[in-house]
Write a protein that binds this DNA or RNA. Structure first.
Lengths: 227, 227, 227, 227
DNA sequence: GATGAATGAGGCTTCATTCAT
DNA sequence: GATGAATGAAGCCTCATTCAT
């Protein structure tokens, strides 16, 4: 509401606009000019804050990922490993639910390009995995979790479950239409542009899914008392 | 070496070339002309077999996915649900190991664009999930698997585990260099183009990982006798 | 009906197909492959009979023009100049009416490209004009027509009237819809693809128009008895 | 020479360049890059002002046509119908003489494609015809012109005369070479590329031709006092 | 800092023409 | 003569980025 923009104001507005536009169109289809328009700045202004469109995506990802990590650390702090794990899962999926555009960027857009997957070191994601792996490792140390699986691999697997659910949920339509419809036998591209709407399953309750994930993960990894 | 091309020869060569080029550069960075060169055909020839670059990616994906589904059906046929599940997992990861370029297309490239994620009905992937969900459902029916989680959600979760491991493995470097190296505090894009080599963990044994996944999944979903 | 194509059969079929396709799409938008398909021959076959797509248009034009000239000579033969002129006009517009596809090629397609207008000598059209100019010249000689206008210029002017009426008639819609509708103020291209249907006046009676043209031309050029 | 471009400067320069290039090569053979070069702008700049190459042609046509209509209205304003008609004709042909490149676009290029002829509503041309038809109608109302021919058809016919003369004049060479030379009997295309120079009649005096047209038209339509 | 008009490299795609069968 | 799969040159247009104001 202040007339004079707070410092960092434009930067934040650009990041928010980028998140919206990336979530809507995907990174490659997103146009810098649309981000600028959405942010209410000139095209060139974006380049005062970010080196390139790539940098914008990466900064956006890092920004979000730091928030996510901080939030997850808050949520798991001081808890026993198994509880921490359940809290981690629940909080992650709740985030997906509450901020679907952030979810799109976190789960889809960064995968959009092997350019990023392959060339970008992605330290935040490494931190994220390290944190998750750390919880598992502590559980293995204190005997509450089985140690058959290396903790960093376990972290990957857990993230895989979360990410896939997030993806399925993000791509699902609003709970209006019906179930999966199998398309015909036309050439692949024929199925583009036709919306694929009928094929999208309706949105499930991703927050409730936390229990399912928790069940799968902890029951699987948890050492059973009566072994 | 034969002068007379087998029927479908060119189409196959184009698909194979596209797989290589997409795997190397990613879909968006891939150039149709490079695919043509790689396939040993003229640029225009590609358009005798495929409607567009998009169609090429989709056809490639469908081609591969059909093979994968057929293979997985072969491998799981006639087995009890829990066994079928383990076989499914093992076969999938083995495939990733044996054909890394196919793996890239299956796990990464199709995600390259929300264009595809959102607009493409993707019936093959639906079939894939249906098959996996069917195994789970049968296990829930015969009591060998717990039914806390809806089978189609369980299928998603299992696929998430597999896909994430595949992704991690595909992106990992050959087992040469060391472990994760955290980059400094430069702007995001600085970490691009520098190879990120040091940051890529070395390749783990993805085939052996099948046991880990199987453990996680079956132990988690399997109803324990002495509950 | 003969199984073995008569000599020249294919050539004629190609020319007829070209006329249809040129009339439908225009020369530049016409595809050689569509002409081939329409003629029931292979693409390559066209090049056994014609040097190029350009040659096809020119040959088509010359073919038609020869027929037209022969017909007009038949119709005007042995008539007094003024009568010959009226017969010429009537016969030309009747032809437009009876063979609208030929009309399109004669009036529009050859104008499609300054390539043809500028680079092609067009001897048939020259013959056409010479014939028309000859009638006028004879009328000037025998005193039935005024000689204020050079006969070759008069021929041009008469052809202009005929051609414009032909064009208007060819482009007019079937006598279904109403009158001219003025479009809005959008950018030019906006009015493309929208059919322009509403803007096309309905077809008038082009055969009856011969009297109008005859009236204009002869009354204008004819020396009035009581000058 | 001014460093600061006037507003609309670039747009005008592009239109002027397009007129030159279209007149020289024809619409289809014209290259957008050549227009850009000719206008002294980058290729992409054209697309800041026009949607497409098509839009450029249409805008050019509309631009010119508006000028022409305004000029013709100025010239005919307040005149009796017969005088107005003569003024209209004279002014139109004078314009052709003074701005041959505009003439090319007005008479030839817009006919280049049935795409434009058929799909483009062309409101300016409709205005042009309406104006001309209005003059005729007024003449018919006040008895100075015969009413045998519907005024809108008369307008077409008059325009046909003007357009054909314009075309003949535009395509004629400078008054250097001789008269029409009939080419031989080679295949049509042989006569292409050879310049057809010999075949083009020399330029006649198109301004003087206004009297001829005026004579034809008014004498023909004018009711003769001593009928 | 902010602007946004201008840039221009470069890709996807078309299609007339060829030529091995 | 007939075929039609293959060719490959070439153009329209996009859009990230720059820089004069």
């Amino acid at each position: 509401m202040t007339v004079h923009s707070a410092p960092g104001d434009k930067r934040e507005r650009i990041l928010a606009a980028a998140e919206r536009v990336f979530a809507k169109n995907g990174f490659f289809a997103a146009r810098v000019s649309e981000i600028a328009k959405d942010a209410g700045v000139a095209d060139g202004t974006i380049y005062l804050y970010f080196k390139s469109k790539d940098d914008l995506l990466i900064s956006l990802f890092e920004n979000r990922m730091k928030q996510v990590i901080a939030m997850l650390e808050r949520v798991t702090a001081g808890k026993a490993p198994v509880d921490a794990l359940r809290s981690f899962i629940r909080a992650y999926l709740q985030l997906i639910h509450d901020e679907p555009e952030a979810a799109e960027v976190l789960t889809i857009e960064l995968r959009q390009s092997s350019k990023f997957m392959k060339e970008y070191a992605n330290p935040q994601f490494a931190d994220f995995l390290r944190m998750l792996g750390g919880i598992v490792a502590r559980g293995q140390d204190d005997g509450s979790l089985a140690d058959a699986v290396p903790s960093h691999i376990a972290a990957r697997m857990i993230f895989g479950v979360l990410d896939e659910l997030a993806l399925a949920w993000v791509l699902a339509k609003q709970p209006i239409s019906g179930s999966v419809v199998s398309a015909g036998q036309e050439s692949g591209a024929d199925r583009l542009k036709k919306g694929a709407s009928g094929a999208r399953p309706k949105k499930f309750d991703i927050v409730r899914a936390a229990d399912w994930v928790g069940g799968l993960v902890t029951q699987g990894l948890e050492r059973r008392s009566n072994a």
